[in-house]
Write a protein that binds this DNA or RNA. Sequence first.
DNA 1: ATGAGGGCATAAGCTGTGTTTATGAGCGAG
DNA 2: CTCGCTCATAAACACAGCTTATGCCCTCAT
Lengths: 308, 308
Amino acid sequence: MFMSETEDRAAGGTLAHRVPDLGALELLLAVARLGSLGAAAREVGITQPAASSRIRSMERQLGVALVDRSPRGSRLTDAGALVTDWARRVVEAAEAFDAGAQALRDRRDSRLRVAASMTIAEYLLPGWLLALRAQRPDTAVSLLAGNSAAVAERLLADEADLGFVEGLSVPQGLDSTVIAHDRLIVVVAPAHPWARRRRPLAAEELAATPLILRERGSGTRQVLDAALGGLARPLIELSSTTAVKASAVSGAGPAVLSELAVGEELAMRRLVSIPVDGVALRRDLRAVWPTGHRPTGPARELLSLTRG
Amino acid sequence: MFMSETEDRAAGGTLAHRVPDLGALELLLAVARLGSLGAAAREVGITQPAASSRIRSMERQLGVALVDRSPRGSRLTDAGALVTDWARRVVEAAEAFDAGAQALRDRRDSRLRVAASMTIAEYLLPGWLLALRAQRPDTAVSLLAGNSAAVAERLLADEADLGFVEGLSVPQGLDSTVIAHDRLIVVVAPAHPWARRRRPLAAEELAATPLILRERGSGTRQVLDAALGGLARPLIELSSTTAVKASAVSGAGPAVLSELAVGEELAMRRLVSIPVDGVALRRDLRAVWPTGHRPTGPARELLSLTRG
DNA sequence: ATGAGGGCATAAGCTGTGTTTATGAGCGAG
DNA sequence: CTCGCTCATAAACACAGCTTATGCCCTCAT
């Protein structure tokens, strides 16, 4: 047997071969919580032997014992506890994926139709939808993502019940409320000289430094240009937030990004945030709806969730 | 046909049935990056028809068109771009899982043996291991997680090459270097009155308020008690960081947690951080090794990665 | 003691999903 | 017009995971 041509010598080719599937991870979380294979099996809707076999094959795959089986239950081993924590993050990401996808699916015939700008749809909405589903499991939500103008258009055409925008101004014909603030922040890799500054950056310094930026026309770029007076100087222009992050992490230079996009990178210290003086990089995130049409029902509920 | 007994009426029972598996998500990312089903298929090591079928079944599962097929390539639809971003987060979590698990597996016979405290093993190490693997794909890493004493023991018994501890003091017989700082932070749900404070919290106020805490004996609890002079007043005591987070998010009260544990919650505004005056909640994260035995080879490399 | 019940493991058989190989059809470039 | 790229379809195969049917071990209560 050949392994496929491009190959690391580690066991199993692709990620999917080395990482248990979501069902197995969910099962593991259930075992951790319930302390019994059988009970966990019941919870996820399979039989006890299936659970037993699945956990066993997961242990074989990882090469580590995860649970201590005893005649009166199963507890996690030390390694199992660690693995379970990592598994939880995968499952959480999958839940966010699911919440978003479910909303995306129910395009036409659904109760609550949401239109949101990209940043909000990408980073915030999945979490809100998760919370909404916890409260009202039977509400079908549909989601359309676009820029502020598109959001306004949908609302005014009565093709959406609630919108979210991140622009500086509220489109005409819409009422709005501020639900959160997004700041653009300057980030650098920890090795960058700026990471060791003790004083905040001055606006002029920022304007004078070539930066890793999104392309002109993107929302974050507009805000930055406005704040600096159209002066932002690009070192590289990239077309996705992810690409900008990757460049910054690899040390190419300072980047300016929504803090929503780099929460994890900051916590993990793959990037550090540099304070800036004298620039208004804060922008409002607003919920919007057609003037007069106060949100009701599910829309109202979602709105209240977003305000925490 | 019955659906299983406990059931939301949404399509598909469990998460695993509604979310494509990791292989499919990886494939989607490859398509997004390469702009062609065939090329993506090659990259993940399957044939073109398999990729075609897999993407198609993913579209069926999600009920949304993800890619625009044309005779000269495939580009993502708008919905596809959104889904791809969510998928990326799942895959990243899976990569971290994999990096950790791989290290956990290679217990005995490996090149680089790392011992780390729980918080570090849980939140930071997977990322570092990912970076290390990018630089030296053939280095097998093993990981043991435990408290500071256990880490020191392993190092001194020459059962580990490099350790990471988060204690206040460095165990005897070890040299160390500070690689990062972890702060304990006070967090509350956005609806909590403290979220609207304008002045930092005073130490006495914190000590006087019942808090959601980890159990006595846990690392974070020790640090907090030390900082407050043994005075921390528990509202609830929970045995896992995750449970503490969940309680805080649901509004049960203020919690004190490592900022590493709540990076995402802060970015998403599910929690907000409350500044505190006059308490040293900062603690050093240190790399440690037996006095004299300066880290070399892979250990040195990992060490340099941790310092960014 | 002894049986009931909860817990886990093993064995055998089935099903479904994803895979491969083989082939065809659209479109653009030389 | 034909080569080369793209993607789609069809048929056969493999394997992973499920279920049902057992059995063993341990504990607790009678």
